[in-house]
Nucleic acid binder design. Structure first.
Lengths: 185, 185
DNA sequence: AGATGCATGTAAATCGTTACATGATTCA
DNA sequence: TGAATCATGTAACGATTTACATGCATCT
């Protein structure tokens, strides 16, 4: 459901093709919503059927045709309505929590190595996000000062989320190490 | 994929029925993985086909029959292998981030009211988790001191995640309020 | 009488991923 | 020559949600 409106918001900013959306969802937006191109093309068709967007086919020489989508009046109304709609908490689905729940069959150092793997992934992700936050051009598309505050806020959410995860992993590692030391006494 | 192993871990602790699993997934485990009973029954069938579990049908008078699932040797091996397998970062899919991205069409106080809604939901969730962490009976099922450390760790993850979200929402609220004050000058 | 709990499932729809498929251009 | 970019899509599968469906017992 959110994907449809994430896409509609971009089309509202500027008419664009499925390919453009795919590029956005692989890049700068991937920290708050991910989507494959299959999903994007199917969702665009559905949005067209629902009258949220119009299509303009642009014939290009030497390159494949582009189908450029434009938001309709209907689409604008529907977007504003959705943005105002109730906030929901998406369920946590975190694979490492399931792994840790049943990890008592592993050696403590194997468990710690799972946490280390997780920390590496988190730190890589954080580097990317910090980099993005520092590069102010990304926010140039913003249509108002307030919109830029909101966009920086969403990026900041990703940073704080992963920083919290990393602190948690370090804490749990420390606890497991303390447990091992205690056992050796 | 994780659901299967989340369920298998419970069946490994103690043979149980689909209904028992459903109760767990609606209650104490919901902070790390959610599942409906439809999904649970179908996943149990698949696990049986794959030879991860055996079924024992218990005929009860006055109550519907129970199908109690037991882990097989095969299932145990498969569970350990999965627990050792690579850690992955699940993609963030957070509806409020999409809403905020396109919220420039709202009044600032409407945006703040979205954040307030979010804060209420987060605080309710945190109350439940803190409560659960304080009630030590929940951890009585743990098969070792280390397993209890791991279980508390997973619950702590939920607490830290939502605390970070709440701090983020407060911060963004403050920024929006500062923006409004600046505009009035 | 109606809600809740026990206990099972199926059906339909949506959401999401991976693989398959094409075809030209550009760069190394 | 082979990989990458531009640009579109379909097919198959898997994951997840929601609604439909039954039926007895107990509690209010």
């Amino acid at each position: 459901m959110s994907l449809k409106y994430a896409m509609l918001g971009f089309v509202d900013m500027q008419p664009m093709s499925g390919y453009d959306l795919k590029t956005l969802f692989n890049g700068s937006v991937s920290y708050f919503w991910a989507a494959t191109h299959s999903q994007i093309y199917r969702t665009l068709n559905k949005m067209h059927e629902e009258g949220l967007v119009d299509v303009e086919v642009i014939i290009q020489e030497d390159l494949p045709n582009r189908k450029v989508y434009h938001i309709t009046e209907n689409g604008k109304v529907s977007l504003v309505k959705w943005v105002k709609s109730d906030v929901e908490l998406s369920p946590i689905k975190n694979r490492i929590l399931v792994q840790l729940s049943w990890a008592d069959c592993l050696e403590t150092d194997e468990i710690i190595s799972l946490l280390d793997q997780y920390l590496i992934i988190l730190k890589n992700r954080l580097t990317i996000y910090h980099h993005r936050m520092a590069h102010k051009e990304i926010f140039d598309q913003g249509r108002s000062e307030r919109e830029i505050i909101l966009w920086k806020g969403t990026l900041q959410n990703g940073i704080l989320t992963y920083e919290a995860e990393a602190r948690w992993a370090e804490e749990l590692k420390a606890e497991l190490e303390a447990y091992e030391r205690k056992k050796l006494e």
